[in-house]
Each structure stands twice: as structure tokens, then as C-alpha cells.
Design a protein around this nucleic acid. Structure first.
Lengths: 228, 228
DNA sequence: GGCGGTCGTCAAGAACCGATCAAGACGAAC
DNA sequence: GTTCGTCTTGATCGGTTCTTGACGACCGCC
């Protein structure tokens, strides 16, 4: 879910913006004061910020500067002033875009899309990898290694092991696992689990295989060595 | 040295822009036609582009779209038209900003700084030639070579191979590939992928063909020799 | 010790998926 | 309108994976 923080002290504009953005499927968080906005931005960073410069309690430019000290979240500034100097200052202090009121909703939405597009394309960090002891599961690559050695798993085997690795050390019930891997309607096919548990253990080798333990009558669990 | 490409067919504006940007220490390259601009952009990618939409020989939006197929260079669009629809289209087709003429030089400079600031933080060197082992893909020219030998690909084949080469060694899911090449609405047509994977392998030859491997049940992947 | 329940392993058939070939549909260029 | 190249769709083959059944091991309980 893409979340957008909208900051404006005029309830009418706030309402319009929220409606327009929500209609496009964004999750909208609102703030009516600069203080409230900063509070939100220190706890959960949204995917973009739409910020009215003319707030009651503080200058929008100060908010830009403050936010920029800890986050690169795109900021789209709205302002009633068409002052060139104001624009330049806001843009230089961290705003990514500056729209002069009155603005059109389609244009604002287009500029929001631009801001989000950029964010999406630069998410070039390393893959999120699930770990449990020597077991590494790279979800986007669908690659599994144990003690550095690659492990070849079939799709179902992979799904089952990934489900277990998501909650290291915790028991997943038969039902939960079947639901996760086979989908609904397989709640009673516990035999599948035995077969796949066996194959996974075999493929993980004599050492790794011992990580996958069954809790009789309940389900399966992946031992988390960091907890022992 | 920071280089900016300025595209405008009116000599007077071109001169003004060049003077303003040069005074701020940027290296300025100019083009008076869309064709000239694309020529420059296929060989050396500047750090930012200032593009007038109203060119004599082609529509600026088409330039945006074309450039976006191989580069993420920031594009700031200038236009005499204040049409909302035009703005939305340009922004959605790849423009990063849209300024309506007449504009002020300080504002333009501020927006150029915003564009460059972003680029600076995403150390994302913009090479229009993708490489993966002996495979070279020249995006702007739609040219592919393997081991120096040219490979003739159809548009769809090219798009699919380019998508894979953008992430060497990574699995792209069936969904992702279909989305990338055929657009939304083809999520289930995995047969297309098999047909095209087969054709690409054939055209890459016995050696190159082995680079394209399928991850059963998941998607396809281009082997990255530098990783093995 | 016998018995029912659960778990683990093995193996075979079925179902599915991927690769390839080939023919028809479609669209652009002339 | 014809021709050419590309895209789409169908058919088939070979291989892998999934499902299913059989069987033995283990445990707690009567």
C-alpha cells in the first residue's frame, strides 16, 4: 500500500486532497499543523508528502529542511504564493516540486506519480533475505543456501520452507502450512506435509535437515539456533 | 563536470537558457530539433535535460518516452501550453518536471538543482548499454551483440531480453516479464514466454542460448558469468 | 503385548510445466 | 492489394513435480 501524508491547515483543502488521493487508491494520512506532520514523519515515513507551505504554526520550508535531515521522502509543496523567491528557497531546502494554488487535481496526481515513480526505481538495495542459522532464503531470487551451499528446491518445497523461515523457532500448525503453500481446501492433507518435510530435510543435508522438526499433533517448526 | 542538454527550436530561448546555465557553472550542450536531441542522448547521457515540448520536427512527449526506454536522466519540460492534459501526459511519459512559459530563470535553475540533487544521491551511473557476460545490449539503438556478433531480434524479443539483462543473475517472475514486455492484462499468458525464450535462445546461438535459464514454476533468469 | 494414532520414507502413476515446431492471424510498408 | 515480418495460438514431446498409496518406526494407552 502506498501511503501519502497530506499537510494543510485548511480543512476544505485537506478534504479535497484526501478524497482525490484516496480515489486513486492511495492510503492517505493527514496533518493540520507542522508539529503534527513532524510527529508523523518521525515515526512512520510515508511514500510521499504533499505539504502546504502556509501552515499556522510553522513555516513549511522549515519542515522541508527538518525532514531532509533524516529522510529522502519526496515532498511536493503547495502554495498560494507565486513568489519566485519563495519557490527557489523551498526547492533548495528539500522540496521536490512546487505547485501554485489554485492547482488542478489531475496535475497534482500526475506529479505525485512522478515522485512515486522515482522512489520505486531507486529501490535497488540488496534483496531481503530470510535467515535462520546457516539457512538463507532469498525470496526474490527464489534461492536457498545452507552453510553457503546452494539448495535446489521445487516450488512447493520452497514455499513450505519459506513459510517456516518467516517465523524462526515458532510452530506453524498443519493447517497454517497447508493454507500457506497449497491454499485453502487442503486443510486435511497432512500427508503432503510429511512428504515435503522429508524431502526438504533430505535436500538440506544431514546437518540442516535437523533444523526442521515436527511437533507431533500440532505442526512443524524451524529450530532457531540464535534462540537456544 | 555537470552537463545539461537543452533542447529548444527557438534560438533566442536557447541562447538565454545556455547563458543562464553556463553562468551557474554547468556545461551546456544544445539541440534545436528532436532528432538532434535523440542523437546526442544515444551517445552521451547528460546529467539533466531541459526540453521544450514545442519542437519543429517531433513531439516532445515522444522524446520523453523514447529516452525513458533506456535512461533515467531527469527531464525538465518547458512548454508554452498550460493545458492540464498536456502536463499530465508529459509527466506520465517520463518528464520529471513541467514548467510553463514564461518562466523565470531562478526558478528553472532551482528546479535543475532539484533534478541534479536527486541524481547525486542515487549513484546510478547511466550507461545506455547493458552488459551481461559476452552479451551487449544497446538500448537506444535496439542493437544486440553476443561475443561481438550482431543478433537480430524482433521488438518483443528485444524487450524481453533487455528486461532480463537489466537484472543479470536475478530471477524475473513470469508475471514481471509479461508485465514488462506485454503490459498489464497478460499475467497468465506464460506460453508467450516459452515461445520467446525459445526464440531468443536460438538466436543467441548454442553458447549464448545457455545464458537464458528458466526457474521452473517461477520465471526466467539470465546467468551472470561475473557472479559464478 | 496388542492397538490406534502419528510420523517418516519410498516409489509409481498422474498431472503439470517447459521447450520446440509450425501454422494461422494480424499489421505495417510498399 | 500484396508482401513481408511479427505476434499469437495450437499441438506435441520430454521431463519434472505433485499426488497418492504402501509400509515400517515410534509413542502412549489400554
Amino acid at each position: 500500500m502506498t501511503t501519502i501524508l497530506v499537510v494543510d491547515d485548511e480543512p476544505a483543502i485537506l478534504r479535497t486532497l484526501k478524497a482525490g488521493l484516496t480515489a486513486r487508491g492511495y492510503e492517505v494520512v493527514t496533518a493540520a499543523t507542522g508539529r503534527a506532520a513532524l510527529n508523523i514523519l518521525t515515526s512512520q515515513i510515508p511514500d510521499a508528502v504533499v505539504l502546504d507551505l502556509g501552515l499556522g504554526d510553522m513555516d513549511g520550508v522549515d519542515i522541508c529542511r527538518a525532514v531532509r535531515s533524516w529522510s529522502e521522502v519526496p515532498i511536493i509543496v503547495l502554495s498560494a504564493e507565486d513568489s519566485e523567491h519563495r519557490k527557489v528557497v523551498a526547492l533548495d531546502e528539500g522540496a521536490d516540486d512546487y505547485i501554485t494554488k489554485p492547482f488542478s487535481m489531475p496535475e497534482l496526481l500526475a506529479r505525485v506519480r512522478v515522485a512515486l515513480r522515482r522512489r520505486g526505481s531507486t529501490t535497488d538495495e540488496d534483496d531481503p533475505v530470510l535467515r535462520c542459522g546457516q539457512l538463507h532464503i532469498d525470496l526474490p531470487r527464489h534461492a536457498v543456501t545452507f552453510a553457503g551451499e546452494p539448495v535446489e528446491l521445487t516450488p512447493k518445497e520452497f514455499a513450505m520452507l519459506a513459510a517456516l523461515t518467516r517465523y524462526p523457532g515458532r510452530v506453524l500448525t498443519h493447517r497454517t502450512l497447508l493454507h500457506e503453500v497449497w491454499g485453502p481446501g487442503y486443510d486435511t492433507e497432512t500427508h503432503y506435509l510429511r512428504v515435503y518435510a522429508s524431502q526438504i530435510r533430505k535436500k538440506l543435508g544431514p546437518v540442516g535437515g535437523q533444523m526442521l522438526v515436527s511437533e507431533p499433533g500440532i505442526g512443524y517448526r524451524l529450530l532457531d539456533p540464535s534462540e537456544e
